[in-house]
Amino acid sequence: MTLREIQAYLGAEVLCGEGQLDREVHEAFACDLISEMLASAGSHMLLITSLTNAHVIHTAEVIDALGVIFVGGRRPAEDVIEIVKKNSSIPILTTKCQMFDCCGLLFARGVQADRKDSL
């Protein structure tokens, strides 16, 4: 699925990175612990989280995530979005779906669990 298809499917809002929505997503990693993202996520996955601070954005960059989707209708503070717009092209979306629903819906559409194989 592309990020654009995911956006439509989950009724998500794009907060930034509009130009990168054609990225193809095959895998996702859902987590609310930064250290767990750093330790266990692979690369080129969609990061699903309810954490909305700037650490999530830096972590998404460090782990080469294709994009970030915030669940439960959460959205980062404006200054966090500004940081992303200034430093990165990573697409950031927010959906009203809760974590479980978001994961289940994407899984049903063929998005697989991200498996770390690079470390």
Binding site: L33, S35, L51, N53, H55, V56
Partner: peptide
């Protein structure tokens, strides 16, 4: 903040 899980 998403840290402090004893994983650092």
């Amino acid at each position: 903040m998403g840290f402090g899980a004893g994983m650092g």
